[in-house]
Design a protein around this nucleic acid. Structure first.
Length: 292
DNA sequence: CACCAGGCAAGCC
DNA sequence: GGCTTGCATGGT
């Protein structure tokens, strides 16, 4: 990959294993959306980005070399060799197909706190509504900032939410999840949970700490570990993963713990990557779902 | 109008 | 311990 600047654009050429549609449509990130055929626009922390792709050329619009190297390079996980990961995962016909289908997936390195709240909101919800709730949360309580002449809102800090009541969150229309968001905010605000504590904890310790938040169970904790703490061994089992694993590896319904154990053995430290390839493939092709 | 959405907690036995 | 049910809201 080569990096060049052209005015306020950063141009990446010879980019491998990178496709915006795969990255942003595999359900890991809720604040980026497609604006036209090959362009996505979104917000991460207190920065916005418009990014487009044509083959193996990627353009980051209205940014700088500094922001590219300090923010976006890490966000897009550009130091990780996905070719190597895909070779390790493509050990059977199912995984070969899943990896081929989502060949441009990269697991974004997202913010821990934002990921925690986002996946609390994801419980028993659908992606368009998850995005709506998150945007309302940001508009009401996030710090405004400017990008390309327009005003956007950062994700609200724990401090901004910790002293709110459920009534204050009513306009967000998060439903029964409002009290879970507040519990998470209070635990992060008080320091009971912190990025430093969770980063330095072992996988199982971090998982247990996250599950101390009301509204965080095994599945949501798995997503936070995978997307917010870069624990790539996490294999969160949602309805789609459950279906695709049952369909290809078991042939019959299985309890979630059975699927988790199977994945742990089969994928080892690469479970999170496997999960993303399987999720995108299963959902796009409705694998295992009942016909309409 | 049922039924479901990247689940979870509380209440049962 | 495992199993069932209610949960807010919006889309199909």
């Amino acid at each position: 990959m080569n990096v060049n600047a052209n005015g306020t654009d950063i141009i990446l050429t010879n980019v491998c294993d990178f496709r915006l549609r795969h990255i942003f449509e595999c359900g890991q990130c809720f604040r980026f959306n497609r604006t036209n055929d090959d362009t996505y626009f979104g917000i991460f922390k207190n920065r916005a980005l418009s990014i487009s792709q044509n083959g193996d050329t990627v353009i980051l619009h209205d940014t700088s070399r500094t922001d590219f190297y300090e923010v976006w390079h890490d966000f897009f996980d550009l130091d990780t060799d996905y070719g190597e990961i895909k070779r390790h995962l493509g050990v059977d016909e199912t995984m070969r197909q899943a990896v081929e289908y989502g060949s441009g997936i990269r697991i974004l390195r997202q913010d821990l706190w934002e990921t925690t709240v986002s996946f609390i909101i994801s419980a028993s919800n659908n992606i368009p509504r998850i995005k709506g709730i998150i945007e309302r949360l940001c508009e009401h309580f996030g710090e405004p900032f400017e990008y390309a002449g327009k005003i956007y809102h950062a994700f609200p800090s724990p401090d901004a939410l910790a002293s709110l009541s459920e009534r204050d969150l009513a306009p967000i229309r998060a439903g029964f999840r409002d009290k879970y968001i507040l519990d998470a905010a209070r635990k992060f605000f008080s320091g009971e949970l912190s990025p430093r504590t969770l980063s330095s904890a072992s996988y199982e310790e971090a998982r247990a700490l996250l599950k101390s938040i009301n509204g965080v169970g095994d599945k949501v904790a798995g997503c936070i570990l995978l997307f917010g703490l870069a624990r790539r061994e996490a294999f969160p089992v949602d309805v789609w993963i459950k279906r695709v694993m049952e369909y290809f590896y078991f042939g019959s319904p299985q309890p979630i713990p059975v699927i988790s154990e199977f994945a742990k053995t089969k994928f080892s430290g690469l479970g999170g990557y496997a999960q993303q390839y399987l999720f995108l493939w299963a959902r796009d092709n409705k694998i295992g779902a009942t016909e309409d």
